[in-house]
């Protein structure tokens, strides 16, 4: 039997100082077209701002875009802050240019999925829609 679900709410954002938002904006458009409710932060957000917005907006997942090389410090910081604020159940995923070796390390730290450049948009949509089914 189908269970009535509230629409999936996802925060999509840019963390750190990099201004590359070509990819993330296309992701936002694709997810919205797929019926996902998106809160987009805009650029240059700190981990503190990301987590505060996520809690205020009561999102189920956070997707962060990052191409600056600062992923190894910024993403673990987001996870740490989520736990501190009692929001450890929020799924963190992301995408952007990072070295191959860093993907397993981020996953071990608690980043659920990392999308690399040239990922078909449908893969991202399928992943995010899948989060709804899991709940």
């Amino acid at each position: 039997m189908a269970v009535a679900t509230t629409p999936l709410r996802v925060l999509i954002g840019k963390v750190g100082l990099d201004g590359h938002d070509r990819g993330v904006k296309l992701v936002v458009r694709a997810l919205r077209d797929a019926g996902v409710e998106i809160i987009y932060t805009g650029l240059h957000h700190t981990p503190e701002q990301i987590v505060a917005t996520a809690i205020q907006e009561d999102v189920q997942a956070i997707g962060l875009s990052l191409h600056s090389g600062a992923h190894n410090s910024l993403l673990p910081r987001v996870l740490e802050l989520l736990k501190e604020r009692g929001a450890g159940d929020v799924t963190l995923f992301g995408g952007g240019i990072i070295p191959d070796d860093d993907v397993p390390r981020l996953k071990a730290a608690g980043v659920q999925m990392w999308f690399r450049p040239a990922t078909p948009m449908q893969d991202i949509v399928t992943f995010v829609k899948g989060l709804q089914i899991e709940r």
Binding site: L17, T46, S68, G69, S73
Partner: peptide
């Protein structure tokens, strides 16, 4: 690097993790 491009010193909290990267 990005902190310099944004007019931030290397010891600014917002520069953490980005110093000398890009």
């Amino acid at each position: 690097d990005l902190p310099t491009l944004m007019g931030l010193d290397s010891d600014d909290p917002r520069a953490r993790g980005e110093v000398g990267y890009c």
